[in-house]
Design a protein around this nucleic acid. Structure first.
Lengths: 125, 125, 125, 125
DNA sequence: GTGGTCTAGACCACA
DNA sequence: GTGGTCTAGACCACA
C-alpha cells in the first residue's frame, strides 16, 4: 500500500508524511483509528524507526494524528488531512500552470493535458 | 531579470539552469547571442563562480549554449530551449493534475484554477 | 471532578497525584476520609490500575494518604496536602516571574496578568 | 553562555530551542547574524550534532532563524523571538497564578512573591 | 508493548 | 567548510 522510492531526491520521511496524510484522508486505517506503531511500520518498510518517528511527529504537529507515549499513535478526531491535501494539490497545479503560461504554453495546450488526465479517470472508474 | 532565491531548497545552480534556459527560450540576451562571463554573472548575482560554472556546463551538455575557451559562452544556433521548456512544463502540469485527481480533486475545481491563471494572463497583456 | 488529559505530555500518574492532592487539600472525599479503591478509580477513569496504584503509592510516601491491606486507602489525619500545594504553587509562580523578568517583562505587565486572574476570581465567587 | 542541564526532564533540544530563542531575542550573536554551525555548537556543548540540528530546525520552523545548506544558519530578518518569549512567559505566569489561586493562594501572598522577585531586580541593576 | 530522546557515525549535495 | 538525511542501536518513562 505504502510505496517508498528510496532513490528519490525527496527524503523518505517526507514521502511518509505525504503518503500517510493521503491514507488518513482516504479513510484507510483500522476502525479504532490507530496507526501502526513506529517500530512496526519501520520494520515493514525496511527503514529506520527514527525516520518513521520523524514523519509521525510532523503529522502530529499538523494535527493529523496524535501520539501517546506508551499507547500508540492515532488519527486525530477533527483532522483536516483531506482539506490540506486538496489545497496543496490545487496550489501545485496553479504553480505549474502559471509557470507554463509564463514560458509560452497556450490555454488549449494546457486543456489538452487536463482532458487526457480526466479521460483516464473515466476509463478507470 | 535573473532572480535567485538563496534560501530556497532548490540548489542555486538548478535555479540558474532553469532561469537561463528560460531567458534563452524567450530570446533575451545580446544580439550576438553571448552570455555574460562566468565571473561577471557570479559577481552580479553574488554567488560563487563555481556555481555559475556548474550551470553553464549543464546548459552546454543540453546543447543550449556552447563555450569557446578564451572567448566566452554563446547561445547555440539550433538550441531547443523552448521545446525542452514546454515539454517539462506540460509534464509538470500533468503530474500535478494526475496527483490532484487521485486525491479527490474534481475536474471543475481544476478548471477553475486554470481559468484564474489565464484570466490574469489576459489582464497583464 | 477528576479530569485527566490523556494526550498531555505530563504522565497520567502525575496528573493523578496532583489532582488527588488538591482534592484532599480542598476537603473533598467522603466523611470517613476514604478514597475510592484502586480498581474502582481506574475503571471510572478508564486507565490502567497500575497507573492509579503508582499514584496512591506516591501519595502514601508523601504522608497524604495511607493504605490498609484488605480495607482500602484513607486520608492521613495530619496530612499537609494544603501546605505542600501552596508551597509548590508559590514556587511555580516565583520561577515563572523570575524567568519573565529576566527576558524583559516589566512589573506592570506582570501585575496586569495577576489583576486579570484575581478579577476573574471575584466574579466567580 | 549557553547552559544545559543534561539531567533535566526537559529534553536537551528543547533547552536549546529556549536558550537560543532567548539569545536571539536579547541581540546576542555576531553582527552578520550568523549562528555557530551545527557541528561547532554540538562540539562546544558536548552533545550530538543531531540534537543541535533538531533544535535549529524547530527554530527555523518558528521563523526565528533560517538555514542554508552549504552556507550556515542565520538569524531571520523579521523574527519575532522577543514577542514569542514575552507571550510565552506571560502565559506561564498566568497559568501558575490561576492554579495557585484555585488551590487557595491569596492575592497578598502572590504579590509578596512578585515583590521579592522585582526587588532582586532593582538590586542587581 | 508504546512513543521519545540521544549518541555515534556515515554519506550526500552544495558553496 | 555547511546543513540535511539516515542507519544502528541504546536507554527512558509509561501503560
Amino acid at each position: 500500500m505504502l510505496q517508498l522510492d528510496l532513490q528519490s531526491r525527496q527524503p523518505i520521511y517526507e514521502q511518509l508524511i505525504y503518503n500517510l496524510s493521503e491514507m488518513v484522508s482516504l479513510g484507510i486505517f483500522s476502525a479504532e483509528g490507530q496507526l501502526p506503531s513506529v517500530r512496526t511500520l519501520a520494520r515493514d518498510l525496511g527503514v529506520n524507526p527514527n525516520t518513521v518517528q520523524k514523519a509521525y511527529q510532523e503529522l502530529e504537529r499538523r494535527g493529523i494524528i496524535y501520539s501517546v507515549a506508551g499507547k500508540g499513535s492515532f488519527i486525530a478526531a477533527n483532522n483536516n488531512a483531506f482539506e490540506i491535501l486538496c489545497r496543496q494539490n490545487l496550489e501545485k497545479i496553479r504553480d505549474a500552470v502559471t509557470e507554463g503560461k509564463r514560458t509560452g504554453l497556450s490555454r488549449p495546450q494546457v486543456d489538452e493535458v487536463i482532458d487526457s488526465v480526466y479521460k483516464e479517470d473515466t476509463q478507470h472508474d
